[in-house]
Amino acid sequence: MNIGWYLAVSALVFCIGAAGVLTRRNPVVILLCLELMLNAGNLALIGFARMWGNSQGQVFAMIVMVVAACEVTIGLGLIVAIYRRRLPIDVDELRELQG
């Protein structure tokens, strides 16, 4: 298969993730949609690595996976903290920081 097909799948997944971040109100699902977007980026990076015949893009993808793991850790920690404080787990309700 040509690399363009992989990039098309990556673009589709990224757009689905972006639409999910905008649509959903549950912070857990928003984090899942962020994962989708990061994984779409990973697929594009690995596709480009294959395109050039060079492993460096795969190293980039590994680093992106590390960053995603950190994001998950902090995000889920925040959700547990919200739950502990008996606050509603809904991004529409949590708007104390809104200007």
Binding site: N2, I3, G4, A11, F14, A18, M51
Partner: peptide
């Protein structure tokens, strides 16, 4: 999301990179 998909597709398919249409180096 649809607009973003269309934009990305245009960017991918209309790119000058010949290698995108290959099976890779």
């Amino acid at each position: 999301g649809g607009a973003l998909a269309v934009e990305l597709m245009i960017a991918l398919l209309g790119t000058g990179l010949r290698a995108v249409d290959s099976r890779g180096a």
